[in-house]
């Protein structure tokens, strides 16, 4: 693996399986990727591909029905999977790695003033007094473009965009190295979405933070992406830098996905993928995309390994064997 000085996060064979009444849900099933400091990686995937579970696995926000949680996660060289839950809570979560959860604007506590909510992580993790934490929250508010007057408001008094900014502020107050953004703009209007992405771009520069952006929206994902990881049926099938990915994706699934994105201009014919992704409970042997793949051949009956295409680009597809 790339033992780069600037490497921030290394994930090896991360697995997160859940028990369900119908069987074991292999939501995250052997995920590998690597992320540098001050870099944003987009995890692209359709609903049910396990991308939200990946966020949960990284932040160790696990439900009770976990069947398997294994692999290696290095954050700045430190192995995280060996930490106890208590150590993880004290040293990692919201200290070095934080999260803006899905539909964060609806995830704010309705009975706490938003200023207090933003101050809370600092009081818990940095152990500072409330006045000081509130002062820092005020500062953070101005940096995410929320008027300081809003510190004393409740979540329901704020618009969706403002609430999303508050959620972002909350993820940043402890100055973490890495913020996981789970669908940060999917419920927002187009203009608000654009404003939030402008904000995230500025934050990335200002705070030198790394982002993992989890989304299904290919078009908006390009707003933040330095690198793109495509997830399908619990696995990452392709990782590449944004430049090469958006111009020429390698994996047939990624290619199809790109071809399905409607564009404002241009005459490109839209395509779609026939069929639906396999159930995470009953996964096929061999390549998981094979059943829907237009380019499948005999080899696809076996599980493809990850092929390194150079320049930190990997692809999990037999078409690239020997490259």
């Amino acid at each position: 693996m790339a033992e780069n000085n600037s490497s921030l996060l290394d994930v090896h064979d991360l697995k997160l399986h859940f028990r369900a009444s119908a069987g074991i849900v292999q939501a995250v099933d052997g995920v590998n990727f690597q992320l540098n400091r001050n870099e944003a990686v987009v995890v692209l995937g359709e609903s049910g591909c396990g991308k939200t579970s990946l966020a949960k696995a990284l932040l160790r926000l696990l439900p009770r029905n976990v069947a398997e949680y294994s692999g290696e996660v290095y954050l700045g060289g430190e192995e995280l999977m060996g930490l106890t839950d208590e150590e993880y809570r004290k040293q990692i979560r919201w200290v070095r790695m934080s999260m803006v959860p899905q539909a964060a604007m609806n995830a704010l506590n309705p009975v706490l003033r938003v200023g207090d909510q933003v101050a809370e992580p600092m009081m818990i993790h940095a152990g500072i007094k409330k006045e000081e934490a509130l002062a820092q929250a005020r500062d953070m508010f101005s940096r995410v473009g929320v008027s300081a007057d809003f510190l004393h408001r409740y979540a329901f008094e704020l618009s969706g965009g403002m609430r999303q900014r508050v959620a972002i502020a909350m993820s940043l107050v402890t100055l973490p190295d890495l913020v996981v953004l789970d669908e940060p703009t999917s419920a927002l209007d187009v203009l608000t979405q654009a404003n939030i992405f402008n904000l995230l771009k500025r934050i990335k520069k200002e705070f030198e933070v790394s982002f993992i952006l989890i989304t299904h929206d290919i078009a908006t994902s390009s707003e933040l992406a330095d690198r793109v990881a495509v997830m399908y049926a619990g696995q990452i099938v392709e990782v590449g830098d944004a430049e090469s990915f958006f111009s020429a994706p390698l994996h047939p699934y990624a290619q199809k996905l790109m071809a399905s994105v409607p564009r404002l201009r241009g005459d490109q014919e839209l395509e779609f993928i026939i069929g639906k992704p396999p159930s995470l409970i009953d996964l096929p042997t061999g390549c998981r995309f094979a059943a829907r793949c237009p380019r499948r051949f005999e080899k696809c009956d076996q599980d493809p390994p990850v092929f390194d295409m150079g320049n930190r680009r990997i692809v999990k597809c037999w078409l690239y064997e020997g490259n």
């Binding site: 771009k201 944004a242 430049e243 958006f246």
Partner: peptide
């Protein structure tokens, strides 16, 4: 505000 998938956006 409407994005197209383009690495330049970032």
């Amino acid at each position: 505000a409407t994005s197209e998938p383009d690495a330049a956006n970032a």
